[in-house]
Amino acid sequence: MARIRACLETALAPTRLELIDDSHLHAGHAGARQGGHFTVRIAVPAFAGKRPLECHRLIYGALGELMQTDIHALSIEIVHA
């Protein structure tokens, strides 16, 4: 989780960042062996005026290859600081 947090902080400078590991809720799920299940609650000033899809793309871009290696599923909640 530290790598995920570091990528988001470095790329997006969030004013609020909560990262929750939900992997235990998916034990036995075939994809769970290939990466974790996470929820991210994030507030980023640069998200102002952007549609949710644009914000999600920025988050996925910040996470880069972690989306292929460490993360199997990511639930994103855009929040206000």
Rank of each mutant, 00 (worst) to 15 (best):
L17A: 04
E18N: 13
L19S: 03
L19A: 11
I20E: 15
D21K: 00
D22T: 13
S23G: 10
S23M: 12
S23Y: 12
L25P: 09
L25D: 11
L25V: 14
L25M: 14
H26G: 00
A27T: 13
A30N: 05
G31D: 05
G31H: 01
G31R: 03
R33W: 10
R33V: 15
G35Y: 02
G35R: 01
G35P: 04
G35V: 09
H37A: 07
H37R: 01
F38R: 01
T39I: 08
T39R: 14
T39P: 08
V40P: 04
R41Y: 10
R41M: 09
R41F: 07
R41H: 14
R41D: 10
I42M: 04
I42L: 09
I42A: 05
A43K: 02
V44P: 04
V44E: 08
P45I: 11
P45C: 12
A46R: 08
F47L: 11
F47V: 07
G49T: 02
K50T: 06
R51P: 06
R51G: 06
R51E: 10
R51M: 08
P52T: 10
L53G: 07
E54C: 04
H56R: 07
H56E: 15
R57T: 12
R57P: 08
R57H: 12
L58A: 15
Y60G: 02
G61M: 05
A62S: 03
A62P: 05
L63E: 02
L63G: 01
G64Y: 01
E65G: 00
E65V: 15
L66C: 10
M67Q: 07
M67P: 00
